[in-house]
Amino acid sequence: MNIFRLLGDMCHLVAIIILFLKIWRSKSCAGISGKSQVLFALVFTTRYLDLFTSFISVYNTVMKVVFLVLAYATVYLIYLRFRSTYNSESDSFRVEFLLVPVAGLSFLENYAFAPLEILWTFSIYLESVAILPQLFMITKTGEAESITTHYLFFLGLYRALYLANWVWRYHTEGFFDQIAVVSGVVQTIFYCDFFYLYFTKVLRGSGKMTLP
């Protein structure tokens, strides 16, 4: 474990908690892409199956359980508890255009042709594009509440910190996970446009982020 990965995991946790609390307290999921949240729940489900087969550390196990519980709880809030506030017409990204290529690629490009390994690879590829429905929804509605932009900021920052973690691990222990690194770079690139708007608009105190 290194400071970059720890900070990254904390940013990830903060992002997920920000979103959950926003929906729970405002009793509304307006402006939130349910599709992205379903994709994230799928990412955690396919990645954390080793919860039952291998024990890494208490931290690893606890964080996996927390991420899974919060991801499913958020999906529950969106599609069941506060479904009347869900903007399904704005959440129109065709997720099959993500799932099919990601599934195909995870069969083609993986470290081992074994069920757990392919599912893990699928989760890595899927995570890099899972935010697209949410970013697409924001471009469609042309705006995002500031709390939603803080959620996206921490979510984007988490994987950027993981890139630093991989640089650190490469130089200190020769660790290099090509699939995770390439996907992590792609994932972080998708946030660049948002980061620009976040720093120029939201942090200037304009509250809402309205797209040009």
């Binding site: 291998s54 890494i56 964080m63 081992a112 993981y162 290099f176 996970d177 995770a180």
Partner: peptide, 10 residues
């Protein structure tokens, strides 16, 4: 043994 074998990251 391949790079992803040791999956100690979240």
């Amino acid at each position: 043994d391949y790079p992803g074998k040791k999956k100690d990251e979240l």
